[in-house]
Every structure is written in C-alpha cells, then in structure tokens.
Design a protein around this nucleic acid. Structure first.
Lengths: 140, 140
DNA sequence: ATTTATGATTGTATAATACAACTATAACCC
DNA sequence: GGGTTATAGTTGTATTATACAATCATAAAT
C-alpha cells in the first residue's frame, strides 16, 4: 500500500470522526447511539442488554442506559424473561419502528444531498470500503 | 445513485463513527482533538484561537480549552500578539513537534495493520473518497 | 470620549462512553 | 439443599469532546 494512501486515510478519518461527532448535536429526534440500538433491536429483537452490548461492541452499562432511555420514550418495551428472573427482553414498539423509519429516511436524505454530484461508482465504492473498514475494525 | 449504496453508506458511517469515537479511550498520549489541533498548528503556526477555530470548524471556546491543554503540556506555547493586546499566537514547540510525529506514526502503523490485506487500489480509493466526503461535509 | 466590535476565556450543559461496585437470581457442586 | 460462584442488569463516578452564553479586556469606529 502506498504511503500516500495511508497518510490520506489517517488524516481524513480523524477529520471525519470529529466532523460527524459534532454534527450529532443538531438532531432533535434520535441521537446516533439510540438510532443504532433501535436498529439493532428492530433486526434482532427479543434480546437483553448483554446480547445487545456484544452485538454493538459496547459496554453493558452503556447499553443499559441507552435502552432505559428508549424505554422511557416508549420506543421499546422491556419484558421480563419468564425463564430467568434476572433477565429482560427488549422489543421495539410500533411507535419505535415508525420513529426509526422517519429518522433513517432523514439520514438517507441528508447523505444523498451530500453526495448528489458523486458518480454512482464512487458512491458504490465508498459504501463497500466503509463496510470493509468497519469489518477490519471489528476483527481487530 | 443506487439506493443500496446510499443505505450502505448511511449505516456504515453510523457504525464507523461510534467505533472510532470509542477507540479514543485507548490512547494514553494524544487524544484525537489535540492531535488535529497540533497538526493544524504545525501547518499554519502563529495563529490565534479564532483562526484555528475557523480552520477546524469548531467553536472558539472549544479550541481555547484544547489549546490551553496543549500549552499546559508544553506542546505549544502561547505568545502575546505585540500588535493587538487582546490577541495571542500559538506556536508548536519542538517537543510538540516530536510528540506529533510519534503519535502520527503510531496512528499510521495501526491503520496499516488494519488494512494490511487490502488491495492497493482499495486503499487508494478509500483515501480519495474519505477526502471527497469530508470536503462535501465542509461545504455543506 | 463614548459606543460598538472583537479576541479570548470561563461557566454551564449535554452526549456518549467505560470501569467499578452492587443487587438479584441462577447454576453448580458436594 | 445450602454454600459458593457465575451471570444479567443497574447505578455511581469519571472522562472526553463539544456548544452556547456570559464576561473581560482591548481595539476600532463615530
């Protein structure tokens, strides 16, 4: 790999992270953390914080708080596991599903606006490479 | 642009941000914020917080605190502007320059490790697209 | 010379996270 | 079946990065 490519990736990643971390402050609806958690629940539903934490690669305490916040807002419901007195399931509610869609659509739109003049090929590559990079991070 | 690409970018960006935001906790030397500030100073040296804030697209108060932290650690020095009693210049110190290099090299190495099995072509594209994306964000 | 603008700092708030301590329940084991 | 250990989850505390608002000191403008 060329050193130039490496240096570009290094710098641009640092910039990207800061830029997008900051941008979160805008959102009045769902923050990034809740969004990913809700998404995960929408996909793998009926799981507890431990499983969620593993799937999201977060500390259990973090997920516990985030899930409690979602529960508070009625976006998910917390159900006692009938077979294990310590455990709970979280389930996305219909309202949560709706909110998730709304938020996701808004995100898609805003990204589309950013990329409106990109060649299809670039958008395709960018998606593929981001995914590949995340995979590398996950396996680290 | 295909909807599929858009959806991939949307999701993978959200994941990436979280993954890399978290990873910061590891670093015992320079955190990401200081790093970018120090880098900027290394490049555009002899500027005050206002200019830095504009260049980095951050709030002045944020930069003020970060710069004070760097000053505290002797990575930069704060010099009174002789022509304007309100203003200051920041200057990276030799020590700061050294630390910057050390940190940057460490970052490069760790990214290189992540990408060791990527085709050169992918690394090149990834860098280019990240840069392009940051540019789009900047112009937003 | 008074008012207004500007560079910088400080107070306060928020979001996202981790680690450590704790609680309650289950599982294990002899 | 009672004591020990493991596990699911929550809560306390700390840290990092950020923004906005208030403030201070000095400069610029009228």
């Amino acid at each position: 790999m060329s050193n130039q490519s490496l240096e570009t990736i290094e710098l641009e990643l640092a910039i990207l992270i800061r830029r997008l971390t900051t941008a979160t402050a805008d959102n009045r609806n769902l923050d990034r953390a809740s969004y990913l958690l809700l998404r995960q629940l929408s996909d793998s539903g009926q799981v507890g914080v431990k499983t969620l934490a593993r799937e999201l690669q977060l500390d259990v305490s973090t997920v516990s708080r985030q899930a409690a916040a979602l529960d508070q807002k009625k976006l998910v419901e917390k159900i006692k596991d009938p077979t294990d007195g310590r455990a709970f399931f979280y389930n996305i509610t219909d309202y949560g599903q709706q909110e998730l869609e709304i938020y996701r659509t808004a995100r898609l739109t805003s990204i589309e606006r950013l990329l409106h003049d990109w060649p299809d090929e670039d958008a395709e590559s960018f998606g593929r490479l981001l995914k590949q990079f995340n995979q590398a991070l996950r396996e680290r």
